[in-house]
Design a protein around this nucleic acid. Sequence first.
DNA 1: ATGGAACCTACTCT
DNA 2: AAGAGTAGGTTCC
Length: 369
Amino acid sequence: MTVDRVWRSLPVKSSEVSLAKVLRCGQTFRWKNIDHVWSFSVDDRIILLKQEDDDLQFSWIMPEDKMENTNRQEKETLDFINDYFSLSTSLESLYSDWLKVDEKYRKKIGSSPFIKFPGIRILRQDPWETTVSFICSSNNNVKRISKMVDSICTNFGTYINDFEGIPFYSFPKPKDLAKPETEGLLRDLGFGYRAKYIYKTACKFVDNEEFPEITIEQLNAMRSKSYDEAHQFLLQLDGVGPKVADCICLMALDKHDIVPVDTHVYQIAMRDFKFKGKKDLKTMNQQVYHEIRLFFKELFGDYSGWAQSVLFASDLSDLNNGVNQISTKEVKVENDSIEIKKRKVITTADEKITKETKTVIKKRRNLQV
DNA sequence: ATGGAACCTACTCT
DNA sequence: AAGAGTAGGTTCC
């Protein structure tokens, strides 16, 4: 059955949102790209997005039994997109501020990421989904995280509908994951030691005897609390340490100035900026963690977490890497296949030299029919 | 108190 | 072709 899908237009420039980058830079793991249409399930529907030259096109798919009242659905979908992408925040003006900082403090190695990588912004994601997703992220890579999060939905979520022959499920609630068999099932699904963390964290959200203060309402309420309070709240959860807590703060709880510090961010601080760590990376501890975090916070200001995401994305060699990339038709080279600069680190006697080498992203590894 | 292992798995690289 | 190395860390000792 081929339906004529209704697409609506949203006037958003690609300098404000680059879907190909934002949805692939490691903040969200569930968007699928099917023949150049981005798809994602939320609550009771599948959201569809397409990036055109001058705007964003959106559509939505409801469950089979909920096809009426289109006007309301359109408004709800539009509201979601505006909120999820924080479209009321102008990215272009932030970029121009960051560029000034970058030019002043960055060690010059090629053109600025704030020129080279437009349209990268921090999403405003659901706190619960973000929590579970980033519990999965520990000691892990984007490709596997995406597989795991998708697996959580198909095994524990609620079926919504199909799109292009692929079934979409909602992201499960805590009660869906707080069952005794969950941990074993997650282990069978390849979650490794994170299986227990997810199970135990889900349990804390449904157990109002031992953890009366840990509820979804409280988690969501952290959006309007201070960073310190939100950070402390999150540290109570299993599998959530300082870095994961900060990811949740930045990407779900409106803490725009928080820079989650991982090995990668530490490298950027050392290599591209003039951060002098007192200690080696091996001895990363609470103190060093917050030193680096505050270093970036002071550098870029109120939206330092957003700025950092651009630096991080620019540091990745391949943003797509075949994650959730599906083609229902013949294999062809992506039209958004972009030429990027990949830094190669060449180590000499006792000095690191960064050299720019041009790399053309070839056909995606997983882009097979 | 604090640094270092151990922890799961699926890659990639050699 | 096996085996080490690693991927946006956290927990435990």
